[in-house]
Design a protein around this nucleic acid. Structure first.
Ligand SMILES: [Zn+2]
Length: 615
DNA sequence: CGCATTTGACCCGCGC
DNA sequence: GCGCGGGTCAAATGCG
């Protein structure tokens, strides 16, 4: 029985479909079938009486037959490739796919042997079971490998998409450049925001997931990601330091390649922190001591490392719980805001460079803005992973070149608007949040705005200098590796919570706005994929994979996301992982954190900062 | 007693 | 050079 359950479970995993009514044998068969291809050798190793052997073979074959037959019945489309192969076997056996075949075999076997034989039969049976178990385990491993491969492929896909997007952006920029003269600030946002070649950025973007995976992330983790994805997030990206960036860029640009390479490497390493002369850097500068400053020129000072991701949401709680443990290390009165700004640093692991700032919005004190910066150097709880992923995705988008110049901005308005992104009529329920890029901020910052309902966002008029477009946030999935924050944890929505559209609005604003130029075609493709996919998670993954590309609005969904700190906090508490600083009241949250074990940290974008504000 | 928070001092970059 | 503002440090304080 135990085996049954286990096998069945595995088979389900492997094939993603239920073989529910299948008998025990059938289930096994399903598994075995796959296994047989690679693992048939295992059988020989086990000494089995000839009769039994034959039986075993028959069983195996039958099982395969059964499995597939069952499969065929259930899924006509499934396994087209394998069908042909298996077909012959079925013919040979002339056994119906029915589960009964297994029974028949048993019966046959018993008939052949005498009572004394029954003991042998049992022994052999046990052996068979053992071998089957082994095979199952192996299959499980294989399954894991396959998933890994899938992840890699997805990663590659994302990368290619990113590159494509970048190329398109470049084209668009070139086009725009003609009609629109660059202003003093006209420098492309992307330049100061992401000195690296776009391709590099894309690579980085993709890289996160891989790292996460390698770090031990399991498929389950990915699921977690997908859960979190909700997000209709408004992302506001403010690029700051434009002057500095510009200056640096002049010199750095040449080093972009080098920087890129380095950054990529750094991304891979959890402990990576950017080192720069900039006092604003949050990181602890604990990076490689070996590295001489000489060797690391300007590239290190590259602004992109300071990228921040901020999230704003409505929350009464002083701080939102994001699954991480934070220690407060400072508080300051921010100019122009009666509410003090609190500084926290990640205390989940000593030396973790991740920091965050928490501040309430002056205009609306119910809105909490949390800004994250840096990458975690340690495994994160699922909840934290979700957040990290979100932020990393946003950061990736920011860094990847989704940002652009004012021209892009205009382009964005033209094309995006025309494409229906901003058209209410076309996308009445466009629920996404807006992402804004602005040059006014000291650091490139992406803000995820969870405070507004989709409709509100929709109607919201972007700042003159900003442009908005839907952003599929969250990349959880692999893509997501994570923003530094791994914020990232599996978050799930309450039953009553409707899955938000995967896309979020993104607005780019700032002196030099940057916008992402995207091809409407891609957007359409993405949206189509999402729309067509009933599975929200899958859809989300799709959206994520295209994060770099301008995502497009979804029909779907409604309102802004309220994040209740309490919920998350509670979840954390339940898990035993509690943000020390979280004092969240009881909640009722839209987004819950699924209890889970620590996950390996997904690689996060270097020095990216995420701000999370709860409304 | 240990840990986390508080809070003033300090550092640094930037603008004038 | 000076002041301002953002950000961090670290001693003092509070809490369990
Ligand atoms: Zn951390």
């Amino acid at each position: 029985m135990e085996k049954q359950g286990r096998r069945h479970h595995i088979s389900s995993k492997l094939f993603h479909h239920s073989v529910s009514d299948c008998s025990f044998n059938v289930s096994d068969d399903g598994l075995l079938v796959d296994a047989t291809n690679n693992t048939s050798s295992s059988n020989p190793s086990i000494p089995i009486p000839i009769p039994i052997k034959q039986l075993f073979r028959q069983t195996k074959e039958i099982k395969e037959m059964d499995f597939f037959s069952d499969n065929n019945i259930m899924n006509d489309d499934a396994d087209d490739d394998e069908e042909p192969r298996r077909q012959p076997q079925q013919d040979c056996n002339n056994n119906p796919p029915a589960v009964n075949t297994g029974l028949n075999l048993l019966t046959l076997n018993s008939g052949i042997s005498s009572t004394s034989a029954s003991d042998i039969h049992q022994n052999s049976n046990n052996k068979l079971m053992t071998s089957l178990q082994v095979e199952l385990e192996r299959l499980h491993e294989e399954n894991g490998e396959l998933k890994t491969m899938l992840d890699q492929m997805t990663k590659s896909y994302s990368q290619l998409q990113a590159q494509l997007l970048i190329a398109m952006q470049k084209q668009a920029q070139n086009r725009l450049r003609e009609p629109i003269k660059c202003e003093a600030n006209g420098m492309l946002a992307r330049q100061f925001m992401d000195p690296r070649p776009s391709a590099a950025a894309a690579i980085d973007h993709v890289r996160d997931p891989s790292v996460a995976y390698s770090s031990g992330k399991t498929p389950a983790d990915h699921e977690a990601f997908s859960l979190f994805a909700p997000s209709n997030l408004n992302i506001e990206v403010m690029s700051t330091e434009r002057d500095q960036y510009q200056r640096r860029l002049q010199t750095n640009i040449n080093c972009a390649e080098e920087a890129l390479d380095r950054s990529s490497q750094c991304l891979g390493s959890p402990n990576y922190t950017s080192k720069s002369g900039d006092p604003h850097l949050l990181d602890d500068d604990n990076d490689e001591p070996n590295r001489s400053t000489d060797q690391v020129p300007v590239a290190d000072q590259v602004p992109f490392r300071k990228a921040r991701v901020s999230v704003r949401a409505r929350s009464e709680a002083p701080m939102i719980s994001d699954g991480c443990q934070w220690r407060k290390y400072g508080q300051k009165m921010a100019k122009g805001n009666p509410c003090p700004r609190a500084y926290y640093r990640c205390s989940m692991a000593i030396g973790c460079p991740v920091r965050k700032q928490v501040q309430r919005l002056a205009e609306d004190k119910t809105i909490l803005i949390t800004t994250y910066e840096g990458n975690h150097s340690h495994p994160l709880p699922p909840a934290a992973t979700a957040m990290a992923n979100t932020t990393s995705a946003a950061a990736a988008m920011l860094l990847s070149g989704s940002t652009t110049s004012k021209e892009a901005h205009q382009y964005h308005h033209h094309h995006l608007a025309n494409s229906g992104f901003f058209s209410n009529s076309q996308l009445p329920f466009f629920a996404s949040s807006m992402a804004t890029l602005s040059a006014s901020a000291p650091f490139p910052t992406i803000t995820l705005d969870l405070t507004q309902s989709p409709m509100q966002q929709f109607h919201r008029i972007p700042p003159p200098s900003s442009s908005t477009f839907p952003l599929p946030l969250h990349g959880y999935h692999q893509l997501m590796g994570g923003l530094g924050h791994p914020i990232q944890a599996p978050m799930y929505f309450p039953p009553n919570y409707k899955a938000p559209p995967p896309s979020a609005g993104l607005s780019l604003s700032g002196g030099q706005r940057s916008t992402s130029t995207h091809s409407s075609g891609m957007i359409e493709t993405v949206s189509a994929a999402i729309a067509s996919d009933p599975n929200f998670t899958a859809a989300l993954a799709e959206a994520i994979s295209t994060i770099m590309a301008a995502p497009r609005p979804h029909q779907g969904h409604q309102g802004g996301i309220n994040i209740n700190d309490g919920d998350i906090a509670n979840n954390n508490a339940a898990r035993g992982v509690v943000a020390s600083t979280n004092n969240s009241p009881p909640p009722s949250a839209n987004i819950g954190v699924r209890p889970g074990s620590l996950q390996p940290v997904s690689p996060q974008l270097p020095r990216s900062c995420t701000t999370f504000s709860t409304n």
